[in-house]
Amino acid sequence: MIPLLKRVAVILAAASFAGALVVAMLDLPAPTVHLPAAVEANMAASGVAHPVTAVLLNFRGYDTLLEVGVLLLALLGVLAVTGVRAAPRAVAPAEPAKRMLARLLAPLMMLVAVYLLWAGAIQPGGAFQAGAVLAAAAVLLHLTGILPGWGAPGPRLRVSLAAGFLIFLAVAGALLARGALLAYPPAQAGMLILLIEAGLMVSLGLILAGLFLLLSRDSGDEA
């Protein structure tokens, strides 16, 4: 049991730190550059109609490129830690009703993912949300015992995991040869963004699903 004095000291320290954070937030100077106006002024050249997608994939595409790289590195880290093993056992099959439900829901979730990807150009949505829905579908299939966990990923899976990042990098590299990194020519911007997002959706879905399917094993096969 923590002595009362120590507990009071911890609570006081935490409260004063939180107070300092709040004061710092309220003390922030007004931004000198009005970013929403700058985004609004350049929307016509971005190739998409939704400001958030324009910022993520066009104006600050560099950030998104590195973000996807970080996610890929995270999955490589999981692979390095879990190591290459024989194919893990499948989860025990769930009741028939649950399996039926999962079989019905999975195609619908794939449809929703593609819709989110397409809708990202004009309204909230985009590759990250679409990938998350794909990953959720894979997790659902895994938990109902339809999709076994991953052992060592084969070459096709490896390529699909890296494809989103590689397509993004290839587009960035091709544009770098023409001038600046990820400065899309306005006429082709919409098409290039859709191509990148389609690759990202597949890869992000597999990466997020992989974080689950590589780690999820029957606890019995741990030493």
């Binding site: 909230p124 949300q129 998350a132 990953a135 959720a136 938990l143 997020l208 974080l211």
Partner: peptide
């Protein structure tokens, strides 16, 4: 709404499923 979508799918859904799986293990 963009962040809300991401939070629901990743923050609550996938992370929750991972944590539940860890608790089960």
């Amino acid at each position: 709404p963009d962040i809300a979508l991401a939070e629901a799918a990743i923050g609550a859904g996938l992370t929750g499923a991972l944590l539940l799986d860890a608790v089960g293990a």
